[in-house]
């Protein structure tokens, strides 16, 4: 299922690398506050991104690191996105896997790195408690905000701590 490779003379058929190159340009020239993303290496298929926890949520002032991996059919298939920073959230499991429809069957080729990260940022403040990966978090979100906040902070690691931990 590999897409056609090789560049086309007149600029059609953006291959995965071309498309990601374009996205990188866009991110660098129009940075979105609270979001960063940069490729890990030259072939651009793996990126590291960060999102700031939105204000007025239990995640305010925390920074979360994510990994993004782009397959050969991007943008016709979603990237694989994982939280690298441990996070206590109803829709993220203990390994950082995310349950979000646009990263699965509702993915659209018009989405890009920026829209994915913005969606994840808003997921932090508006969890989908109807289909949780972390049932306890879903329950506490409404029932006991104080305890929820405590668990969020207990689980969180700063990027420095993460790096020190060898990640």
């Amino acid at each position: 299922m590999a897409l056609s490779t090789g560049t086309r003379a007149n600029g059609g058929a953006a291959t995965v690398a071309q498309r990601l190159q374009k996205e990188l340009m866009d991110i660098m020239t129009h940075p979105t506050p609270g979001i960063t993303a940069f490729p890990d290496d030259e072939n651009m298929t793996r990126w590291t991104a960060t999102i700031d926890g939105p204000a007025n949520t239990p995640y305010a002032s925390l920074v979360f690191k994510l990994s993004m991996e782009f397959g050969a059919t991007y943008p016709y298939a979603p990237p694989t996105v994982l939280f690298k920073t441990p996070i206590y959230h109803p829709n993220v499991d203990m390994s950082g896997r995310i349950c979000l429809d646009i990263l699965k069957d509702k993915w659209s080729a018009v989405f890009n790195i920026g829209t994915v990260l913005l969606s994840l940022q808003s997921l932090l403040g508006e969890p989908n408690n109807a289909s949780p990966l972390n049932g306890q978090a879903a329950e506490l979100w409404d029932k006991d905000p104080a305890e929820y906040q405590r668990l969020v902070l207990a689980r969180h690691k700063t990027p420095e701590e993460l790096d020190a931990g060898g990640l």
Binding site: L3, S4, V110
Partner: peptide, 15 residues
């Protein structure tokens, strides 16, 4: 029959 071309055009039509 080129997957890339065909997906591109289909995506354009979808939009």
């Amino acid at each position: 029959n080129d997957l890339g071309t065909s997906l591109s055009i289909m995506t354009y039509f979808k939009l």
